[in-house]
Design a protein around this nucleic acid. Structure first.
Lengths: 415, 415
DNA sequence: ATTATTTATTCCGAGGCTCGAAAAAAGTCG
DNA sequence: CGACTTTTTTCGAGCCTCGGAATAAATAAT
């Protein structure tokens, strides 16, 4: 079962801890690191001097930080941007984007492309992804050797090993082993991640104070997605990628969902559901493939203007989300919620019904204290999470590896 | 944030690992332990000789294990029963029980008592619990000094620190800090646990093969409770004790639940709900306080006999449980389920509707493969889980303590 | 009965790691 | 310019785990 701790693990873990302390804090001094990790100054000194020698960390020439304090000034440690690089690929409905990010987390190059994901064949879809990655890797400004990882975020269900896309609403294709394909093509370790999980990762990085140990990121878009962090860790299902919040059952036997079942939260709160209700179509009407953001904005404007079917559609969406959240909170206890995506801009229309619904549930006992944040733009968030995920992997698996394989040569020893 | 690993932690963790290996395996040899933990023979030898000297482990005189193998025979290590003892107290509806368990996990004494929990005052309730514990501790056969922990399992919501009962269906009283009360009274560390969580712990001990990393224990009783193990760990809410599966919303605005809200799973599947539906009372009828097991058995018999309101009541219960499980599975992926409690004996009546409902949900994609186990007797399970929980605590916190406090004196240094 | 073989356990020296204390370094303040 | 303060490095001590050799305890073979 669980394995004993060997002596060499110790150094490995403490190395990883120092690296992650630097990544979190930006430019901490050795003394600061000692304080946050609880390790002694001697240990930090030894580890950081190793890391500097290996080119992973660098002493930032404190520059014009006129400390105005007595005593020897602290010298900040920072991540060496050239230590490695990662690629963050985001594939969403009709849109593909890739960014090259250096080890310090800065975007050094990017490329975006529109494509018609719903109608593309399997090979076209894979081909586009491979091609866009290849173009970035062929950039003469980039040292290909330093690229340590490719992370691909996609809307849909991935398997538990973060290797394959099992199902996605953005394409009729299923079971695409993207991670293996990219790995084989470029010889660089690759992972697949769920977009909502990446949103959650990014939120945590952006505002660790608010999004610390337990919180929820909900994507309000054509479909409804969720990223969940519990006890400081991304919660993913055991077999597949993540909590399918959108497919919790809101009303048994209720409205027709895009997934073919009935009564899912998404069948009331997804864009297509709001659109369907606003047009006063039957709940059994086949979900439309796509509703443009402009059209949704128009719907929201009309709902704000007058009390009609549009407003009622948003009310129903709020109710579904509220009961869904209530059931979720019955299981995990209330936590801060971030509403992300285009429809988050219409959260003012959703919130009243949502709060009313949640107050009727077990999780709603403290419904007043549950706070909602909105962020209409999901793409930057997804990319950011993707990048951080990949960089954390480099931190832990490559620069603080286990028994076999010393660091130095950046990736060949892992691939 | 996360703290670095010190040098002394290493020994502590490996000690804990050896102890837990012995607890799991029963009578493993040093060689076996080395194999399961991945530590070297030398290390295991050193640690186990320490543990034997401290009286925590003992070499079991292999006795008549005629190994018939060549080579030096293995000598089994076992837990020294006298190393410590724990008390497992279980408080449920109208029933209080306590068991004294030695360090090896054997029950050495027990006592049970009927009492009318629903009508007792706060002081009476506390008084009974304190009194029954005191009687066990005054047993001349018991070395009080060796009692290292009291664990109290109760049906209801406990706080996240396992110290207080926040709310329980078995008593109108709320906010009873049982753990603190017992600790103050006897000077022995105490914890409070949720009964369903303890069922899950016990199931895992009884059948680690079936109930390994992810599974669900559902208590079908007057109310509906759940114990959830995810990734090998008991999943408890972050603020309170556990997932309130029974209070997920099955039908918004539906049947009246004991908790005062509407449409909870429990309002369809709890004993009182089945009873209410079987009598064809309104869904708004006030839940009755208690339905005897005999009465429920009669209901089940009638349901089996003929297609009438009784059968329909069980069907509704199955439907509610099925949709609830489906929503749960949408979040955490399907896992084996154990149905525990008196109504588990009527699972034949519940199962068809349950499977039908679950098949209509996102989690039901592999509904055929979801397996259910039944166990009509919850009490032994709860007690067993309680005992194992307390013993694991002794293993880890007392016999493999952190920096301060060497073991030997069994508990004073912790209290 | 005695020796060879096999397997389990212990002993011992080597190598690593972290720690605390002391020393060195690099500033500010008067 | 020297005193003071704070950060960082250096150094020896103390643990811990590991691998290999030695020892122990049984069975199989002679």
């Amino acid at each position: 079962m669980s394995v004993g701790i060997r002596h060499d693990d110790l150094r490995r873990r403490n190395r990883a801890m120092v690296i992650s302390a630097v990544r979190r804090a930006g430019q901490p001094s050795r003394t600061e690191i000692a304080a946050t990790t609880g390790l002694s100054h001697s240990t930090i000194s030894a580890i950081s001097s190793d890391l500097i020698q290996e080119g992973i960390l660098a002493e930032s020439k404190s520059s014009e930080t006129v400390s105005m304090k007595r005593g020897r000034p602290q010298v900040g440690l920072s991540l060496n941007p050239q230590a490695a690089a990662v690629l963050a690929v985001v594939l969403s409905l009709n849109f593909l984007s890739v960014a090259v990010i250096d080890y310090a987390g800065q975007v050094v190059a990017e490329e975006q492309r529109r494509l018609d994901t719903l109608t593309m064949s399997r090979d076209e879809l894979i081909g586009e992804c491979v091609a866009i990655v290849r173009r970035r890797l062929e950039d003469p400004d980039l040292d290909v050797q330093s690229v340590a990882r490719i992370a691909l975020a996609i809307q849909g269900i991935t398997d538990s090993h973060a290797r394959a896309l099992l199902w996605s609403p953005i394409t009729p294709q299923t079971n695409i082993a993207f991670a293996d394909i990219l790995e084989r093509e470029f010889g660089i370790p690759a992972i697949m991640e769920n977009d909502c999980n990446m949103m959650a990762v990014a939120l945590r990085w952006r505002d660790p104070h608010r999004y610390r140990d337990d919180f929820i990121a909900i994507l309000l878009s054509h479909g409804i997605g969720m990223g969940l962090v519990l006890k400081g860790e991304l919660f993913t299902g055991t077999h597949s990628s993540g909590g399918e919040f959108g497919h919790m059952i809101h009303r048994p036997g209720g409205a027709l969902c895009r997934c073919g079942r009935r009564g899912c939260v998404e069948a009331y709160a997804g864009n297509y559901a709001i659109w369907r209700n606003a047009r006063q179509l039957s709940e059994n009407a086949e979900p439309v493939a796509d509703v443009s953001d402009a059209e949704m904005r128009a719907l929201a404007d009309r709902a704000r203007e007058m009390d009609g079917p549009e407003r009622e559609a948003y009310r129903k969406a709020g109710e579904a989300l509220g009961f869904g959240l209530g059931s979720l909170f019955a299981l995990i206890d209330p936590a801060p919620v971030a509403m992300v995506g285009a429809s988050a801009a219409a959260f003012d229309l959703i919130e009243p019904a949502l709060r009313e619904a949640i107050a009727q549930t077990a999780g709603g006992q403290h419904s007043g204290s549950i706070s909602f944040d909105t962020e209409p733009n999901e793409l930057p968030l997804i990319r950011e999470g993707c990048a951080m995920r990949a960089l954390s992997f480099v931190d832990q698996e490559i620069f603080a590896p286990g028994a076999q394989g010393k660091p130095g040569t950046t990736r060949r020893d892992v691939a």
